[in-house]
Design a protein around this nucleic acid. Structure first.
Lengths: 271, 271
DNA sequence: CTAGATTTGTTCGTATGTATC
DNA sequence: TGATACATACGAACAAATCTA
């Protein structure tokens, strides 16, 4: 019944050139069956314009359709799951469910890329310095009343954490202020980049200097800057917001240098 | 010998809260064994500081070590392969080989994220307008003689493509100019972001307007701007380079609007 | 709330293709 | 030219999760 070698169905046994960089012989290799199916399903999601929540055929149907075994289908689906395009649902009416790739998955992926690169935090601030200014302009006039009250609450929280000298809470609260700004933006790329940089600063920064005075000054500056920003946002003054943010980033960058900050590159893969 | 239920070894049957957004019941779910192993191996790569080219134990060894079957190990390795951290090598002395996650994999991942977002190109230019200026400053004085000659060659190529009215070649050549600049930068995050935006403009832009005159003007402007940039780079004048780049991006943005440019969002998943 | 049905998750055994020696 | 070591693929079965009656 079942013929091992080849079947009908949509699969073509395309032989493509696949670079094998570190091996001496960069030869022609048969593309893995599961990878072919992965690509097929991706195209299908794109072509049929599937939306988050839509279901793909279950494993059994896919096995029959592509004429392959369960393990192969599972590998193909696994790839799409890792890419964030699917999630598997078990039970009746289960099966692969289309998902919108989340910002977290892309964040993790970008971190994995940076793990093997030479990243210091001067680079991060070189970017943040301009991106946060663009963000400040972008959200001015777009922040709702609810956003503004949450920003005010965040400042209070930040202030309290500073008083308690709880550095961990200070850091999370400080980055959350900027994350709230992102929520008001309509530029998805800008949002991604700013949130990515925020997450790096939240999760991966360590200070070699323990000087309490400097840390306190840093915290006080942040609260002041955020207060000024909030005022500018309330006044819907984009130029003022941009100017304050620019100054804020300059100061933060200097403080970080003074506190001898660096990234925990050893945590970048796993967190 | 082999006991089905549970084994010693590093695996803990941790039950964690896993959100199931679109399903009614967001219940506790056992984390998939293959996912646990994926995480374990990721930690291992990080902890042992493995470098690209290093080999992991082969499938059989991993099966024994984690006390699970081939299919499970294969799914775990598949995940790491998709993440770009591994590639599989068959044959003697084969096995999973550690790889540095490539910029292309991250690019694809970010595109997959954008597929489900509302992305228009005004957003792209809002970013590019500032990022390319930062890049111009960053690479001034860092461009080698070789870079400069390649930029000059690229300008000649761009000019020729313009004369021939070959829009496809014009577009690839124009973005390549900016990619060459990236090569000279030392800021890996900046490089990634600029190259990502470049690739979007190269692969996914379509023009609704076919007005030849406008396209010719656009092409002529680009060549002029690139020539001016090259001169500024040669003079190692960062301020001039930044000013020219800023003007260049402004113009490009206007041209794109006039030509009624938009993204082929239907190609973003598969290309 | 229980019982059965449905579907994913995992295992074992086996066979085949592929690269190295 | 094998022989070897490894990934790749198949198939049948059972376990676990989850929906529905």
């Amino acid at each position: 019944m079942s013929d091992h070698t080849n079947k009908d169905g949509p699969r073509e046994m395309a032989r493509i050139g696949k670079d094998t960089p570190s091996r001496p012989a960069g030869r022609l290799t048969r593309i893995k069956l599961s990878d072919q199916i992965t690509e097929e399903i991706r195209r299908r999601i794109s072509r049929e314009g599937l939306h988050p929540g839509d279901r793909l055929p279950n494993e059994r149907s896919l096995m029959e359709y592509y004429g392959c075994s369960k393990g192969t289908i599972r590998e193909a689906l696994k790839a799409l799951e890792v890419e964030g395009l699917l999630r598997m649902v078990s039970g009746p009416n289960g099966g692969p469910e289309v998902q919108a790739a989340s910002i977290d998955i892309v964040t993790q992926q970008l971190r994995r890329y940076l793990h093997f690169q030479k990243l210091d935090f001067a680079q991060v601030y070189e970017l943040r310095q301009t991106l946060e200014v663009v963000l400040a302009r972008n959200v001015t006039g777009r922040l709702t009343e609810e956003h503004l009250t949450r920003l005010a609450q965040n400042i209070a929280l930040c202030d309290a954490a500073n008083q308690a000298q709880d550095r961990e809470r200070v850091r999370t609260a400080e980055t959350e202020f900027h994350d709230i700004l992102c929520e008001a933006s309509d530029n998805v790329m800008l949002i991604f980049m700013c949130r990515f940089l925020n997450s790096m600063l939240r999760d991966l920064v360590s200070y070699r200097s323990e000087a309490m005075v400097e840390h306190d000054h840093f915290g006080a500056h942040n609260v002041d800057a955020h207060r000024d920003l909030l005022a500018a946002f309330r006044a819907r003054d984009a130029d003022a917001a941009a100017a304050i943010m620019s100054e804020h980033m300059d100061c933060a960058s200097r403080f970080m240098r003074k506190l001898d900050a660096s990234f925990h590159m050893d945590r970048i893969l796993t967190r």
